[in-house]
Amino acid sequence: MSARLEELLVVAIAGMLDGLGHVAVGAASPIPGAAALLARERSGGRLRVSLLGSERHSAFTDGGRELFDCAGQGRIDAFFLGGAQIDGEANINLVGVGDYPRSKVRFPGSFGSAYMYFVVPRVILFALEHSRRNLVPRVDFVSAPGSSPPNVYRPGGPHALVTGKAIFEFDRARRRFRLCSVHPGHDVDEVRAETGFDFDLAPEVPSTPEPDAVSLALVRGSVGAAIAETYPGFARRVLGIGG
C-alpha cells in the first residue's frame, strides 16, 4: 500500500473533524495532532486548532487551566483521549492495571480525561495498539466513564475509537461500539479475535479508505512541516520531513 498506516489514520481522523469549529489536541498525540492540522488545512483555515505543547499552534494565554475552562464553556468541539485500557462501554483507564491503589502496572494518571470526556461533544478515542491487552472486557480503574446516568450533566462523550486495525463508532444509547471499517491488511475476524469486548457490526464493514492523493500530499507537505514543530521525531520517522 502506498500510504503508511499513520498516514491512513491521520486522513481518517481528519474526516471526523470536518465542519467543526475548534479542535484541541493533548500532549504526546502526533497522529491526532496531524489530523487536526489536516482538517484545518482542508477547511481553508476556518477550523481552529489548539495543540498542547506547540507554541505556534496554540492560542491559549491563561496557563494550564484555560483549555479546561474553554471546554467547560463548550468552546471545544472535539478532543482526543487514549487509554492504557478501553472497554466495550468506552470506559477508559489511564491509571493502572490491577487493584488500585496497589496497581501491578502504574501509568502516569488520568490527566484531564475525567473532565474532558464529559464536556467535549466529540471525543475520539485513539489507540495505535489493538489487542486484548488494551481493549478489555472491563477496565481495572475508571479514569473516565463512557456514559453517565441521565441526570448527570454531560454534553460530551465518546464519538469513535480509532486503532491500528479498525475504526469503531460509539452508540451512546446502546452504550456499545459498532465496527465501521477495518484497515487494509486486516479483517473482521482478526479484529474480533484481538478485541476483548463485544461490539456490533455496521451493516457493511468496508476497508478503511486509502488516503486520497490531495490529503496525502498535504500530510507529507505543509501539515507534516507544521506538526514537526511539536513532534520532530514523528515528522522525521513517519513522514520523512526534516533532518
Binding site: 488520568s110 475525567a114 464529559f118
Partner: peptide, 24 residues
C-alpha cells in the same frame, strides 16, 4: 486548578463539571 482557584479567592470550595462516575 479548581481547588487552587478556590484558595485564590479565599472561598471554601469550587464546583466542577464532569468527574462523576470516575473511580477518582
Amino acid at each position: 486548578h479548581a481547588a487552587l482557584q478556590a484558595a485564590e479567592k479565599g472561598a471554601p470550595f469550587m464546583p466542577l463539571r464532569g468527574v462523576i462516575g470516575s473511580d477518582l
